[in-house]
Amino acid sequence: MSTFTREEITHLGDLARIALTEKEIVRMQDELNSIAESINTVQEVATDDVQPTANPVPLEAYLRPDVAQKPLTQEQALSGAPVKEDGMFVAPRILGEE
């Protein structure tokens, strides 16, 4: 069954943008394997004839009229910004390959 290898956890860390430390990777490997083992049981009953449930209370989407409401001010929008410049949020260098 699914077992987490070191490489897999490193890769998942990349996907989830978390720079996991060596120690964390090692510890997580054990923990995740134990969790995975226990939760793999869902496959026992999830047969093809069962429909998946995404929302527990079935609803149809309410559609919002296309009417504008007061937006945040620029000051409010930027109030939590770790770094800002000229009314904008500052990102460190973005690599084209990202």
Binding site: G13, D14, R17, I18, A19, L20, R93, L95, E98
Partner: peptide, 12 residues
Amino acid sequence: QTAANMMSYTRE
């Protein structure tokens, strides 16, 4: 010092 690495170290 890229945006991607900033995100990863911030979240870590």
